[in-house]
Simulated assay, not measured.
Amino acid sequence: MNEHATVASRTSVWVPVTGLTIFAIASGYLMSLLPLSLVSHNIPTYAASWLASIFYVGLLLGSMLIEPIIKRIGHRMAFIAFISLLAVSVGIMAVYTSLSVWLAARFVAGIAVAGIFVVIESWLLIGDSKEERAKNLGLYMTSLYGGTTVGQFGIGLFGTTGMMPFMVVMALLAMSMMPAFMAKNAKPAVEEHISLTWKQILGLSKPALIGCLVSGIVMGSIYGLLPLALRISETTSNNDQIGVLMAATVLGGMSIQPIVGKLSCRMSKSLLLALVSILGVFAMGIYQLDQNYVTHIIALALLGMSAFALYPIAITLACDGIESASIVSATQIMLFSYSVGSALGPVAAQYFMRHSLGLMGFFFVVLLATAIYMLFVSMKTKPSVIAE
């Protein structure tokens, strides 16, 4: 990468980051809005898990289709196109309240969000060094989770009934396109994109693939079912409390990003994945042992730290040693793994919610299994980790 390209990439970073932040506010509000608005739209509450799963099926399909689109029209126009598609899906849900229409709209939304994620992640991960990639991804995750945190307060400000909440989401999505519209010359430093071969795909880090898979399982369940689980909890009695608990979860995820960015350059990433998984296990233990509202705020903040740290650690692990021209392809594969987990997670979590363990028990089991696996991997690969 030449000096001019490096300067250009740095000056254009504000475009994806600003657009992402506004998108995240809209997405954060929509995330909690959907399960909480089912009753007012005469849709059964059990549909929450199906709406979450169909969204991630769309994310799964989209993750396989994005690379050719970015190659053809570039990162900036691809971002505008995918945001527009997402806004259309939200508008359809505002007008039609049939479950079948909502399922179709969420499927389309999943494809659109897959495009948004691959565009932004590959834009920010294209760099010459691990340190630069870790720094940019930390900026990406902080913007994503910071915006998502702010979006949670839309529940109290705009409510969960009628068309108004959906109109607010659409307005925010329209605003998120403005930076890309205004900065017509903004683009990543590397415009050439090379697809990974099957041999290269099979050679990608297995802990990275597992980390993205588990991240999808946990995050899909948080986004799709946590608001509903909190509503039926004895410690929450209104939407404002649910909004605070959701915000605590996302704020916890945002607060750990700078730490993750620094640690991922200084220690084994598989060991780091084990440690953040153990943090989530600890958080769920606290949540189950004490039913106090304040304790639940702390526990969910710790869960957020754990769950929201898995993906950035895993994707930087996957991109270690990969040339910048192949980053789009690599991020697409990692998103595919994430999407598989996201599609399966809410369905499996729904089973736990029918029993005494509940959603928090589901998180406990998944994160404990992940911690054990990553600990074994880190011990097995200890000599090679020092080279990181």
Rank of each mutant, 00 (worst) to 15 (best):
N2D: 14
E3N: 15
V7I: 11
V7S: 14
R10A: 15
T11C: 07
S12C: 07
V13C: 10
P16I: 08
G19W: 03
T21H: 06
F23L: 14
Y29T: 04
S37E: 01
V39L: 14
S40L: 06
H41Q: 11
N42D: 13
I43L: 12
P44L: 05
A52W: 00
S53C: 06
I54D: 08
F55N: 15
Y56N: 05
G58D: 04
L65A: 11
L65R: 14
M77C: 04
A78I: 11
A81E: 07
A81F: 10
S84M: 04
I92C: 13
A94E: 08
A94D: 10
A94H: 06
A94F: 11
T97C: 00
T97D: 07
S100Y: 15
V101N: 03
W102P: 01
W102I: 03
L103D: 04
R106F: 05
F107D: 00
V108L: 13
A109E: 01
G110A: 08
G110W: 09
G115E: 01
I120G: 00
S122M: 06
S122H: 08
I126G: 05
G127R: 12
R133D: 07
L139K: 12
T142H: 01
Y145A: 14
T148V: 08
V150Y: 11
Q152G: 13
F153R: 09
F153D: 06
F158T: 03
G159I: 04
T161A: 15
T161K: 15
M175T: 14
M175A: 11
F181D: 02
E192A: 07
H193P: 00
T197Q: 02
Q200P: 02
Q200Y: 03
L202G: 13
A208L: 06
L209G: 06
I210C: 00
I210Q: 00
L213Y: 06
L213A: 09
V214Q: 05
I217V: 15
G224V: 05
L228K: 12
I232R: 12
N239S: 12
L245P: 00
M246P: 11
A248I: 08
P258L: 03
I259N: 01
K262P: 00
S264E: 05
R266G: 03
S268E: 07
L272T: 15
V276I: 13
L279F: 10
Y287W: 12
Q288K: 09
Q291S: 10
V294G: 00
H296L: 13
L302P: 01
L302N: 02
A307H: 09
A309W: 07
A309F: 04
Y311F: 15
I313W: 02
I315V: 13
L317Y: 05
L317N: 09
A318R: 01
C319Q: 09
C319L: 14
D320C: 05
S329A: 14
T331G: 07
M334L: 15
L335G: 06
S339R: 02
A343F: 15
L344R: 06
G345T: 09
A349K: 05
S356K: 14
G361W: 09
F362L: 09
V365C: 09
V366H: 11
L367F: 12
L368C: 05
A369T: 10
M374D: 02
L375W: 09
A387F: 06
A387D: 11
